[in-house]
Simulated assay, not measured.
Amino acid sequence: MPNIRTASELQRNMNAIYDLCESTKEPVYITRNGRESLVVMDAKAFDDAFDLRRRVLEHEMRVHDALMRSQEEVESGELVDFADIRREN
């Protein structure tokens, strides 16, 4: 369950919000007029999450590039049919 606090709580008791972020490593959602307005998060936890996101994106791009190269090989006729390979063996 997400940590939710009001903007008034943040103003009145910022140290408690700091402590909550630091101890849980989870984001704290700050609401204003009953709606989510900000997200406050421990800096190290944020950096770790952002780094993970970057690494996942890099992996996805490598997979995408490999798929595109494969598609180009199919379209140019560079691939050998699996049945042909089996017949050769």
Results as ranks from 00 to 15, higher is better:
Met1Thr: 08
Met1Ser: 09
Asn3Val: 11
Asn3Pro: 00
Asn3Ala: 10
Ile4Val: 15
Arg5Ser: 08
Arg5Gln: 08
Arg5Cys: 07
Arg5His: 06
Arg5Asp: 03
Thr6Gln: 06
Ala7Met: 12
Ala7Leu: 15
Ala7Trp: 13
Ser8Thr: 10
Ser8Tyr: 12
Glu9Asn: 02
Leu10Cys: 05
Gln11Gly: 02
Gln11Tyr: 13
Gln11Ser: 12
Gln11Asp: 10
Arg12His: 13
Arg12Phe: 14
Asn13Ala: 11
Met14Val: 10
Met14Pro: 01
Met14Tyr: 12
Asn15Gly: 11
Asn15Thr: 15
Asn15His: 13
Ala16Ser: 10
Ala16Asn: 12
Ile17Val: 15
Ile17Met: 13
Ile17Thr: 14
Tyr18Ala: 10
Asp19Val: 02
Leu20Asp: 14
Leu20Lys: 13
Cys21Phe: 05
Glu22Gln: 15
Glu22Pro: 01
Glu22Ala: 15
Glu22His: 15
Ser23Glu: 15
Ser23His: 14
Thr24Asp: 10
Glu26Trp: 00
Glu26Phe: 00
Glu26Pro: 00
Glu26Val: 01
Tyr29Glu: 06
Tyr29Ile: 14
Thr31Cys: 04
Arg32Ile: 04
Arg32Gln: 13
Asn33Ala: 06
Gly34His: 09
Arg35Ser: 12
Arg35Val: 13
Arg35Met: 11
Glu36Val: 09
Ser37Pro: 01
Val39Pro: 02
Val39Thr: 12
Val40Ile: 15
Val40Thr: 07
Asp42Thr: 06
Lys44Glu: 11
Lys44Gly: 00
Ala45Asp: 05
Ala45Leu: 02
Phe46Asn: 08
Phe46Asp: 04
Asp47Ala: 11
Asp47His: 06
Asp47Glu: 11
Asp48Glu: 09
Ala49Ile: 03
Ala49Val: 06
Ala49Lys: 08
Phe50Asn: 11
Phe50Lys: 14
Asp51Val: 02
Leu52Tyr: 00
Leu52Asn: 02
Arg53Tyr: 05
Arg54Asp: 07
Arg55Trp: 01
Arg55Asp: 06
Val56Ser: 01
Leu57Asp: 05
